[in-house]
Design a protein around this nucleic acid. Sequence first.
DNA 1: CTTTGTGAAATTATTCACAGCA
DNA 2: TGCTGTGAATAATTTCACAAAG
Lengths: 222, 222
Amino acid sequence: MPERMRIPKPTARRLSLYLRELNDSIQAGRVRISSKLLGDALGLTDAQVRKDLACFGQFGQPGVGYRAADLCARIRHIMGRDHGWNMALVGVGNIGRAILAYHRFQDDGFQIVSAFDQSPQIVGQTISGQKVLPMEMLPQEVRTREIRIGVIATPAETAQEVADRLVDAGVEGILNFAPRRLNMPPQVSVGTVDLTVALEQLAFEISIVRGRGTTEVGAKTC
Amino acid sequence: MPERMRIPKPTARRLSLYLRELNDSIQAGRVRISSKLLGDALGLTDAQVRKDLACFGQFGQPGVGYRAADLCARIRHIMGRDHGWNMALVGVGNIGRAILAYHRFQDDGFQIVSAFDQSPQIVGQTISGQKVLPMEMLPQEVRTREIRIGVIATPAETAQEVADRLVDAGVEGILNFAPRRLNMPPQVSVGTVDLTVALEQLAFEISIVRGRGTTEVGAKTC
DNA sequence: CTTTGTGAAATTATTCACAGCA
DNA sequence: TGCTGTGAATAATTTCACAAAG
């Protein structure tokens, strides 16, 4: 078997789903699991699951399936989930507060260890156990607390500036909740959670499902 | 030019981004806009932008570009954004409260008009101006308030059941914040916002960018 | 008989490149 | 010249289908 390869982006997205389903299955007492079973639970074909897993080597047994615990540990390691990730939150408004209060993150090994806000009214308050710090302390906090991920929960207008400051401070990745595309150097990874986009996509799908199968102007078969 | 066609899923995702950028550009006083300009702002090629827009007919002028206001109106209509969408929120915990407080939704034409919770402790409270109702009132509210979208912000365990009740009540689409795949009839559209998946993808990308370009076991060139 | 791993085929999406219009 | 619309080429992803292994 060859050695180096590139993981398709869709595969990377699904990895997270495999991990969750695997955890649930193990919790439920399952010891072995087949690509069919995994796929059915997630709405994927068995072939898809096998192709995805094959990216990381071969640890299934023909005729038997995968050992759930092994597979799970393997994927956890691949995804860097076998250790914790310290995160800094910037922007303690509505969304920021929800993120601070959302303890599932902690359970999953992602911990917000520092929170920042630009507003003097908010700095100094303690919210969900986090004392909100002024932006000036960002570089120092990233260094001393080994923060690797920045979470942006500011309005769109300040998102790019905050992102730049996070990168300067040394984070390796950014999770962006602001409805704005971030311009970042390629060595910094960016993930986006955009509620408006999610809603608009949904509205679009609904509009298509019902009534006009397309637009009324008509266009070619793309 | 032919008449019916199917919109590629990636195109549907980008439509939302075009709309936002177009709004910003118009706000900034721009009257005409080219595929190059739009693409640069969003990190896409000009060809990509043109191909996407071509799905809905042709309204660009060679040598000139698109009339920003026209294009914007066109996309708004296509996406069903030329009218409001009434939504029901189910689950008024951390995430639910954040969604209620997130007034950007309202600005964008998506309005939460009813909120529900299973817990007797929460039912009856007024949160961000919404009186929380018991689940029993769901069908009636969906009917009388013309609710078309259900937003699920419950724990994973109850998400499927809530989804079923929303569908029974008559919603056409569901926005799911619970970390669980929903099994739905095909005529109901589902959008998912999954924070853990977003974070894990980010962690995965970071792990790959630095150090090992792949896993140490090595696999084939997928 | 079941299920993996995987080439080969099919499908889907993106980029190229250029004719034609302003 | 600048820019759209689009067929043709390319690239990426998924599905098929089957040999080999338990």
